[in-house]
Design a protein around this nucleic acid. Structure first.
Lengths: 193, 193
DNA sequence: TAATTCGTTGTACACTCGTACCACTAACCT
DNA sequence: AGGTTAGTGGTACGAGTGTACAACGAATTA
């Protein structure tokens, strides 16, 4: 037996990130091998060989997108004490203008997953649970679990709803005003950003 | 000059509704002439002749979907006095299990529109404004406009976020619990449903 | 009756899609 | 050197796409 050429993990990550960037920019529902490969400057077969099939590529894209969003927020939430601070940090991150396109992809996947649950079941399983756990933890062990879950659910829903509004209308003034009012209503907030 | 055969408005509405039903059931991003026509029991050319092009058909579907959602809520909101009652009525309607698929389509279009604003600009323009106007009006003329807008924005965001959660997780108990807490926090609410 | 428009269908064309197959180079181990 | 796997690319095939064109009966008015 002789082992073959080692896997170039750097190249794989670079390729996957490039695919995610392309998907963020050009949309999720229209991605196809040839235009994607042309945009990345590679051959379509390179992508096919790398990801196996289109469905597998989309799975990889979703996994990487989840990584991007979570690594920017999860550790952040873990450090902050209190629900209000965590919620404010999450809102500041997710509503940043330079992330608009990324969350456009997020909601595009979300909507599509709702109409194809069998294909995107993994996404749907995590899309709420990830944040729910973080936001429940952020409230500390002293809060009644039912209350903590209720508050975390509300924070997730409100922030995502506000983000949907912001992305659709671009009316940052109105949405930010509503966000401030919501964040100020949370228990244990100290001071605005 | 001789006028031709009159337009069969009944047939047209029936056809459009059938297309919307199909789209609700089988998804928005995969609709194509032939399977759609087969599902409706007609020829593909019937649909092409009726709608002109696929893009025009999608526009018509979005318009009809908006009609369905608004006629179930807008007149409803107009009758009720007070923000709390209007919000509760809206939540009861939108979270009903038999509407899950319809709002699955709603969010699928929403997400896709965020990634293709030039194509779905009309949708994005109305998706918040429609409800915003209704919910501001529901608060009566005595509320400060800035406050009314802030509250309406928050109600829309929270209800849509909760609906997203409900559709993704199916965890009605947790989501309904959070919804009750939110609705109870609104000014002027009288009694739960 | 003649003219005109609507509703419906069949056929065909150019195009894109995902993917399988083959070939070649590069990098590693025995 | 020989064997094995990764990375990349070229070609081709079958299927499905949107849509244009032509045709025919039905329903209306001049």
């Amino acid at each position: 037996m002789a082992a073959g050429r080692p896997i170039d993990h750097r190249r794989r990550a670079e390729l996957l990130d490039a695919v995610v960037d392309y998907t963020v920019e050009y949309g999720f529902s229209e991605v196809s091998w040839r235009p994607l490969a042309a945009g990345l400057g590679v051959s379509p077969n390179t992508l096919v060989h790398r990801f196996g099939s289109k469905e597998q590529m989309l799975e990889a894209v979703l996994g990487r997108l989840r990584e991007r969003i979570l690594t920017d927020t999860d550790d952040l939430l873990g450090e902050r004490p209190g629900l209000a601070a965590a919620a404010r940090a999450a809102w500041n991150r997710t509503s940043a203008p330079q992330r608009a396109a990324e969350f456009g992809l997020f909601f595009a996947v979300y909507g599509r997953a709702l109409q194809a649950p069998e294909q995107f079941g993994a996404f749907l399983d995590r899309v709420v649970a990830d944040w729910l756990r973080s936001l429940v933890d952020a409230q500390g062990p002293d809060v009644d679990p039912a209350t903590a879950t209720r508050r975390a659910t509300l924070v997730i829903a409100t922030l995502r709803g506000l983000l949907l509004d912001l992305l659709a209308t671009g009316d940052r003034e109105r949405v930010q005003d509503a966000a401030e009012a919501f964040l100020a209503s949370l228990p244990g907030q100290d001071r605005p950003a």
